[in-house]
């Protein structure tokens, strides 16, 4: 089947533009963040800053200090959503093909259709639970802003259109999914979606400070 012009536009130039904005935007944001510099710490270290940074990066993947019982919902829904999302991103058959054709030039085994459906359901469940808590928990309502909702709904739209486009039966649905992905990529560097990169910087900076003090909160 010949690719219609509008789909060519979406998957060709628009994709390139979105991907470029994503890469340059993320790069610019990270570089300007690091360019703010960090004051040299003149205190006498008791331990290693680098070791502390690494420890904090690893340690904060799972709750410690006895907090699992009070954060079980956050932890489980958070991991459920993120792990399922990454699995879909990397192993959904159309993604493997798309990445091979447009980005990487090589492929790897994709997940079977049944696994896609289960994983997608898990990802939706995770996202919906995270959203439900965001709108119902007084603490989260207090600290939630428009950006949190925007990125959540945009991600939801990407996932939903992705599921609709799975059969690749309709070019329109495939195009719609691509448009949502492109919007998501363009929005990414300007939003809190950047936490996908800043998590390591934040944990690392804290870990470096306390690593020098020989302790790890």
């Amino acid at each position: 089947m010949e690719t219609p012009f509008w789909l060519w536009l979406i998957e060709g130039p628009f994709w390139l533009i979105a991907a470029t904005i994503f890469v340059l935007g993320v790069g610019w944001r990270l570089v300007s963040l690091l360019a703010l510099g960090r004051r040299r710490d003149l205190s006498v270290p008791r331990g290693s800053a680098a070791g502390g940074a690494l420890r904090a990066i690893l340690l904060h993947f799972i709750p410690h200090g006895g907090f699992f019982s009070s954060t079980t919902f956050h932890v489980l829904t958070g991991y459920l959503f993120h792990l399922a999302l990454f699995a879909l991103l990397l192993f959904a058959a159309p993604h493997v093909t798309f990445l091979e054709k447009n980005v990487l030039g090589f492929a790897w085994p994709a997940m079977p259709r049944w696994a896609f459906i289960v994983t997608a359901e898990l990802a939706f469940a995770g996202l919906i639970l995270l959203w439900a808590r965001r709108i119902s928990d007084p603490v989260q309502r207090q600290i939630t802003d428009g950006g949190d909702h925007a990125q959540l709904w945009l991600t939801f739209a990407v996932m939903l259109t992705g599921c609709l486009a799975l059969e690749e039966a309709s070019l329109a649905l495939r195009g719609l999914h691509m448009v949502m992905v492109e919007l998501w990529l363009i929005y990414f560097p300007f939003s809190r979606l950047m936490h996908a990169f800043t998590w390591a910087l934040s944990r690392g900076a804290m870990g470096a400070t306390f690593g020098r003090r020989g302790v790890m909160p």
Binding site: R38, F67, Q140, D145, T198, W199, L201, M206
Partner: peptide
């Protein structure tokens, strides 16, 4: 007061609210 450490920490917050579970005042 804002350096790269402060900026990275402000940027990384995902507004999850788990910190409330640790604070004796909350």
């Amino acid at each position: 007061k804002i350096d790269s450490t402060v900026a990275a920490q402000l940027e990384a917050c995902i507004h999850c609210g788990q910190c409330a579970e640790a604070c004796h005042f909350y």
